[in-house]
Design a protein around this nucleic acid. Structure first.
Lengths: 355, 355
DNA sequence: ATGCTTAATTTTATCGATTCCAAACTAGCA
DNA sequence: TGCTAGTTTGGAATCGATAAAATTAAGCAT
């Protein structure tokens, strides 16, 4: 039961019209008689005609595809972002092309090139921890390819940004630890010069300042590779443990770092939260099942993906180039569990924090 | 610094050649003089020429893209599969188009249609739990689109299959429970008529039989939606708990079911493993951090993705249609942790099982 | 000088859809 | 009857790359 797709010229031949008439009829052009339109459409329907998207792309110079540049697919945060992007893109007739940088700037550049060859109509980008040189992305943007940043954003390019409320989230988490009686709160975070690192630092400092606690430089550990390699996380925790005055609580500022540090404390048989409390950003599933259950900040990853896709598609489809851009800041959720609450004062509550 | 991509005819005009000469020179055709070839290539290199893939697609009727049909991206197993597929596809010049069925047969059919309009060169498919009607897929296959199945496969179409060693894995896990002294082992598994369900049942029955233990029908709970909705998992566990003779161990036959059942036991304050042992398939990260640490079967998801992509690309690029197909069965890893070991006999070991 | 072979390049058609331009036909009106 | 305006359709070019067919140029033997 061969069923080769039929083309406009097949229809034209069959009905004895010219292909331009058929094309116009199918697209409801104003200059086609009602009768012709009906005949053509009926035939197309009956023979299951669908336009050849490749040919349309060539003609229109639009590929109806969106390039996604992110670190890693098997990472709950990014997987949910992808799902969010897909949900919007699918309904608007776009498909998405996913590339992974694995936190390598070089791989990121290659992926970018690849996506441009694929002639994507726009890009949704979360920068790698290594990225320093923004010139390639700037050039692409200058050439008219719309870009929307999410999560790890950059101000080097004037465009939309979609992020979680990083400042608010880390402020609230740090405050929660302070209110719980912890005073020596260390932070393990991503590479030093990323947007999310700055923002998460800001909230952390703000909460400390409010409690009159001076921020100690040796209480902040940066993971240059964002926790891609487990060693850098373990080294960071170990450094903190080895301090003359080790911290009593850890604020871990990314998914991988949270899990890695938690696992390392386990391995070292350090009692949580008695010897060391721990809480941090984490979109991994089921932190409530951990031992002890883990206090986390959960980012609205699906929403971030949806929002980024909506903004990008609007950019792509708008007649004239946009001139004003927005930074969408989405609320996070702090879920307090056992890992950050001293045993003598059991507490278990869920707070939803909006910016 | 506008930098519009240049085309073959741009080069042709600039160098005073015809476009076919340029095309052939770039493709190292035999009938082009060495001198011309060098001039053209130098110019192309200098002006950063890259062929327009859309035009190539239209001409060659190859899109250099692979359609991926799976349940859900934010699911560690599938996310790792995607990553594996991407790693191979990227190096072979293919890009992947991902669609999610969310376990809905109707959505699956729509996605399939969408992928065909996109004129993908081949499909990598894991069926939804709902899928009954294979006719659409069969028709697509009959029309010459190569397909490779993974995980949830079907024999309705004669093609390659890539799966984990489901029989071996569930045999080994059941045997482990039996050797640990458990005798009333229930299974919570996916929809009844899926390949993976059959295979996982087979291993479970085989181990029971070896120990002379009759399989009880009321000890097998099927989740029609594969655990998509948490209620069906909770209902299944509750039914087992409500039995006159409730089981003493649970074998959970999919990622979501494992996590869902574990969480439900937690919620019901059932002591694991004293009151109820639990162990099952799970590709989620860090089950060793759970309370108690969770015995799991981990599937080689990344490898499954890689293998499926390799087989598919071979099918796509082979001159004549393949006539013989293989079923690749990849080894799983059983990691025994506390959730399946009675307290009085502590044990902690890692076994790697090959088929 | 003529014919024949081979090498190098150009011309032209093609993939499928779209669109500019022109042609054909129908009404309406002086 | 003739002319204009409006409606409907066909022809041809286009997007960029490719390939079959045609052309040109050069080399060599008779």
């Amino acid at each position: 039961m061969k069923n080769e797709p039929i083309t406009i010229s097949d229809i034209a031949k069959a009905l004895n019209f010219s292909s331009s008439t058929v094309s116009r009829a199918l697209r409801d052009s104003y200059q086609i008689s009602e009768a012709t339109r009906r005949i053509v459409k009926a035939y197309a329907e009956k023979h299951n005609y669908h336009p050849n998207l490749v040919a349309q792309s060539l003609k229109s110079n639009k590929s109806k595809s969106i390039g996604l540049l992110l670190c890693s697919v098997p990472n709950n945060f990014f997987a949910e972002v992808i799902s969010g992007v897909e949900s919007i893109a699918y309904n608007s007739g776009y498909h998405i092309i996913i590339t992974q940088s694995h936190e390598s700037a070089e791989r990121e550049a290659r992926n970018l090139e690849h996506l441009i060859w694929r002639s994507v109509d726009g890009l949704i980008v979360s920068l790698s921890t290594e990225t320093k040189d923004m010139s390639k992305l700037q050039q692409i943007h200058a050439n008219g390819v719309p870009i929307v940043f999410f999560d790890r954003v950059s101000d080097c390019i004037d465009t939309h940004q979609v992020v979680a409320d990083n400042i608010g989230a880390s402020y609230n988490l740090t405050k929660h630890l302070l209110e719980g009686g912890f005073r020596k709160i260390a932070q393990i975070t991503s590479a030093e010069d990323m947007s999310i690192t700055h923002e998460r630092n800001e909230g952390y400092f703000k909460a400390l300042a409010e409690f009159g606690i001076p921020a100690r430089e040796d209480y902040i550990q940066y993971c240059r590779h964002g926790g891609m390699m487990i060693e850098e996380i373990e080294t960071s925790v170990q450094k903190l443990l080895d301090l003359k005055e080790p911290p009593d609580a850890l604020f871990t500022a990314s998914d991988r770092i949270t899990i890695g540090a938690f696992a390392f404390l386990h391995k070292k048989k350090i009692r949580i939260p008695d010897q060391m409390a721990i809480a941090g950003f984490c979109n991994f599933s089921s932190p409530e099942l951990f031992n002890p259950s883990l206090t986390t900040i959960c980012q609205p990853a699906f929403e971030i993906g949806k929002t980024a896709a909506e903004l990008l598609i609007k950019l792509i489809e708008s007649k004239r180039p946009a001139t004003s851009f927005e930074k969408r800041i989405l609320p996070t959720e702090l879920i307090i569990r056992d890992s950050s609450v001293k045993k003598n004062k059991p507490l278990r509550l869920v707070t939803k924090l909006n910016k």
